[in-house]
Every structure is written in structure tokens, then in C-alpha cells.
Amino acid sequence: MELSTEVTDGLQLSGDSAHIPDSVFGALVESVCDDLLNRENGGELQIADKFGSVDKASLKEAYAALMTFSLECAKNNADSSNISSVLEDCKFTTERIKTFTNIFLEKKSHIQALLGSVSHNPPHIVDVDWRLDYYIKNNHVDKVNQPTYLITLKTEECGQQDTKDVQFACTMEQLQDLVGKLKDATKSLEKASQM
């Protein structure tokens, strides 16, 4: 885990009880983790009453450093020993290391899930709708008499709220082909999971 001097400075500041009192430290770490997970907040530090008379500039610096540190820890899947060795270097007391580790490790998997979703993906299929029609005739041809399936794939895309539809029609033979291929994929997936 590599941290810039800015971050290590910030961490040192947040470990220093002269700047960030013990009474405030736990609340600060909690709001860092909560803000990471609660994206609607936009990552803005809510300077609530719980931080009392702490100097705002120090608070801001500590908050930024703790947030970067938490993200780095989650990104590198750091465990408590990795975390303590870094924090010890930044002159944290054992008590503060414990506070940070407890709060952070509890939220780590959630933060990692969030980080895992940050990437550019093709539209992700989350559901499928179908409808079966019997195609009887049109203005050019009578007696077409063919079963036709209308398939709608519901997809989700990164950073978009609504699902998008991918629609196509297929005959019975085409649907058989499609299902056959999906079954192949499922089977090879099952095989891979047993390896």
C-alpha cells in the first residue's frame, strides 16, 4: 500500500489527540465509512455538532486522509495487521488503531462491493421478458402461420438508474438455438465452479 506524503501527514494529524480529540475520533471514522457507502451525500463532510469545537481545517485534513486510507485499505484488501503497521508509523495510539480497525473492518466488504462496481461494463442483463405470438398474415402474405417469440432483455448500465430494454423477435427454431447456447454456457459455468 503506497500513500502520498499528504495522506501520511493527514493521518498523523488525525492520530494526534491535540488536533482530533479522542471523543471525536470514533465519530470521524464512522462518518468517513458512512459517506463512502452513502453516495448521495456526494462525499461532503457534514460538520455536525458531534465534532464540537474541533478546528475545521484540521478536521477536513483528517477526514480526507482517513477516507483515502480507507479506500486504499479496501482496494488492497488490507487486514488488521496491515492497517496497524501503517497507523503505528503515523503515531496512532493502540486505542485509536483499535477504534479505526473495528469500524473499518465491519464496513470493508461493503466498500469493496462498491469499488468492484466501479468499472466500465457492457449492459448487464438482469431479467428477461417474453411473449408468444402466432403470426397469421400480413398485407403481402397470407397463411404465414408461424409461432413468433418477442424477447425483451432487461439490462442495467453503470451509473444509470433505469433498466434498458434489448428487444428482438425469434422463431421457435431460433429460440431453441438461443436456449441451447445459454444451456451450454450454464453447463460450462457449472464445470468451472467445480474445478
Binding site: 448487464h124 442483463i125 431479467d127 465452479s193
Partner: peptide, 11 residues
């Protein structure tokens, strides 16, 4: 497009 194993099985 992409999907995950459980959605593939579902689909």
C-alpha cells in the same frame, strides 16, 4: 451484453 451466473441460470 454481460450477465452474472445467477442471472444466466434465471434467463
Amino acid at each position: 451484453l454481460q450477465t452474472d451466473p445467477s442471472n444466466l441460470v434465471h434467463m
